[in-house]
Amino acid sequence: MIKLGQYLPGDTIVHRLDPRVKIASVVALSLLILGATTPESALVSIFLAAVVLSARLSLAQVAAALRPIVFFMALLFFVHLLFTGGKPLLSLAPLPLMITREGLAQGISVTWQFAGLVLGGAILTMTTLPSDLVAGIERLLRPLAKVGVPSQEIALMVAMALRFMPMILEEYERIRMAQMARGADFRTGSLSQRVRAVAMLAVPLLLAAFRRADELALAMEARGYRRGPRTQLRELKLAGRDLAALAVMAAFALMLFGTRAVS
């Protein structure tokens, strides 16, 4: 299973917030992160830490969400560290490289931005049921229906993709086992042999997925599905806490801009 930002059930204020508020906040935070100066980034870090605390996410859970990107974080850091011109701090002779003060600062800043963006997204997906997330996106896109964006269809498609992902993974595993049982070898042999063995998996997997899609389409039709407006089990409604959260978010953004105006 994919662990990256997987939903962790909970009953904190962050979990209970309207998904639209959370999506909007993540977008706002992302913009703040991308535009942050050094003192601002400290404030944003504190803000993110406060959200993590109020969502009762453990340090281990946060680390697990960031683990898949550690490699990219390191890569970003070293690229900026080594390839930024400026005042030299340390020369790496005989290599034609040197570490500069600017490079160090930029490496830290870019790596922090990357981690911050991923963490923001991870907090969103770790505290929001996928179905709520989809409902939130649908509701946010709904005004676009007037200009022809099929928001409900998009939402349904995303929801079904999420619903069928684990099933397709299972199918993949089943086909792999079946081929291994008949002597397929995915672990040894030359690279080209292994690539070919994996390609042999793709065809039956795709065929199975298409067949499943066919059956699913039939089942959806049998349950009265057709394009066009449909109703939902839950209509999202903003509660007091949602407005409060939006206010906090807005106040935080204004505060950052305020400090910028002063300095």
């Binding site: 929801a159 499943r212 059956e215 039939l218 089942a219 959806m220 009265g224 599905y225 209509e235």
Partner: peptide
């Protein structure tokens, strides 16, 4: 009710799946 329930279940959660049909009928929440 089809032979394979796996390709009949549309919803991510139990309640959403049951709500799929009534939602298609356009019933109020």
């Amino acid at each position: 009710v089809f032979q394979n329930p796996d390709s009949q279940i549309v919803g991510m959660t139990v309640e959403e799946d049951v709500a799929f049909g009534p939602g298609n009928l356009g019933l109020p929440s």
